[in-house]
């Protein structure tokens, strides 16, 4: 076969290739099928009038509802599987509303079935009063999966919560949770989707399911507050009350002096300096690097423990009336050291 090379033909190919090059990246309208967005472990349809709010340290998402001066809030919180411990959960919220605990028989009457994201869940209501006496209604729904128990709580002014209950039920139907997203780490390390990053010194590590083992006998589980991973009420002592709270941080949040001074102000004491620290701070025996802070001001007392553990700093605080604090001292120290009693 005779092949004769033709320069003109070759140059034409080069020019055509050069022209084609310009057309490679010409934008065009694309049409495609895509899997639906799953932005986090939970998706939902937002009811009208609800606004997304900043979730607390243990919730995934939160919403606020306002109408005519009344307010309500909704929180969605996944916790380690609590199947079989519904009574504990219900009584925790009853306590928040100032109501007495109920037994198993009453519990069955209180729980009503409700669909939650295609699963069968249960719902209960609590009507109580705030500290000032204003009526407070809490509607809580939950369901269990293999990995978690999902809690959906609407709480707020009685009239508004009652009016929003149908929307809450619709919201529950629209919810979809992603087991896959939760499987990435322990539930205790779940954090709110899209919540803004916080500086290290302010960042609470959301709850370990039990920060130092089970709480001592006689302590009542309370709903943890902001930046807290656990909260308990210790038994009353002649009408004296006290509560224990636990927080965990990635750093020592400024050192012992700063934390002692923060605690001192909480019971009305003035700040101290390094020379005054030994008066109220001593090592916590049996826990390396940990300190026990002992503060008292008239009828109020605060026992604090700062415990470095596994690269984090655990802050335990027992605050309340002197009699109750003293009665719970031994249990508190054991709990802070990780020895439940």
């Amino acid at each position: 076969m005779n092949f004769r090379f033709r320069p003109a033909f070759f140059i034409a190919i080069l020019v055509a290739a050069a022209c084609g090059l310009g057309g490679c990246r010409k934008p065009f309208i694309r049409v495609y099928l895509a899997p639906k967005d799953v932005s986090g472990p939970i998706t939902y349809k937002l009811p009208p009038g609800w606004q997304e709010a900043t979730p607390n340290s243990v919730s995934l998402v939160a919403f606020s509802i306002k109408n005519g001066g009344q307010e309500a809030g909704v929180n969605v919180t996944p916790l380690p599987n609590l199947a079989g411990r519904e009574q504990l959960v219900v009584n925790m919220w009853r306590e928040q509303a100032g109501l007495a605990p109920i037994d198993g028989e009453e519990l069955e009457k209180a729980l009503e079935p409700v669909p939650i994201g295609g699963e069968q869940g249960r719902m209960f209501e609590v009507l109580g009063a705030r500290e000032g006496g204003a009526p407070l209604r809490i509607v809580t729904a939950f369901f269990h999966t293999a990995k978690a128990s999902w809690f959906f709580k609407m709480t707020g002014d009685e009239a508004l919560v009652t009016a929003q209950k149908p929307a809450f039920v619709e919201f529950l139907k629209s919810v979809r949770v992603s087991e896959e997203a939760l499987s990435a780490g322990p539930l205790s390390q779940r954090s709110a989707p899209d919540e803004p990053s916080a500086p290290a010194s302010n960042a609470a590590t959301p709850a370990a399911s039990s920060p130092a083992g089970e709480p001592p006998t006689g302590w009542t589980v309370l709903a943890p507050g902001k930046m807290q991973i656990a909260k308990f009420a210790v038994p009353e002592k002649d009408g004296a009350k006290a509560e224990v709270s636990v927080s965990v941080f990635e750093s020592d949040t400024g050192g012992t002096l700063k934390n002692v001074n923060r605690w001192r102000t909480q019971i009305g004491l003035g700040e101290t300096d390094e020379t005054g620290l030994p008066d109220s701070v001593k090592p916590l025996e049996g826990a390396d690097g940990a300190v026990l802070v002992d503060l008292k001001n008239d009828s109020r007392a605060l026992l604090g423990a700062i415990v470095p553990r596994d690269g984090q700093w655990y802050f335990y605080k027992l605050l309340g009336d002197v009699a109750a604090v003293e009665a719970a001292r031994e249990q508190f120290v054991a709990y802070a050291k990780g020895e439940a009693r």
Binding site: P27, I29, R30, V31, Y32, L33, P35, K36, D37
Partner: peptide, 22 residues
């Protein structure tokens, strides 16, 4: 991209994506 998204069923969306250059 300016995206127009329609529920296509079976957990999927149909997307018409118009480039910003348009």
């Amino acid at each position: 991209e300016l995206a127009f998204i329609r529920d296509a069923g079976s957990g999927q969306d149909e997307v018409v994506a118009i480039p910003e250059g348009f």
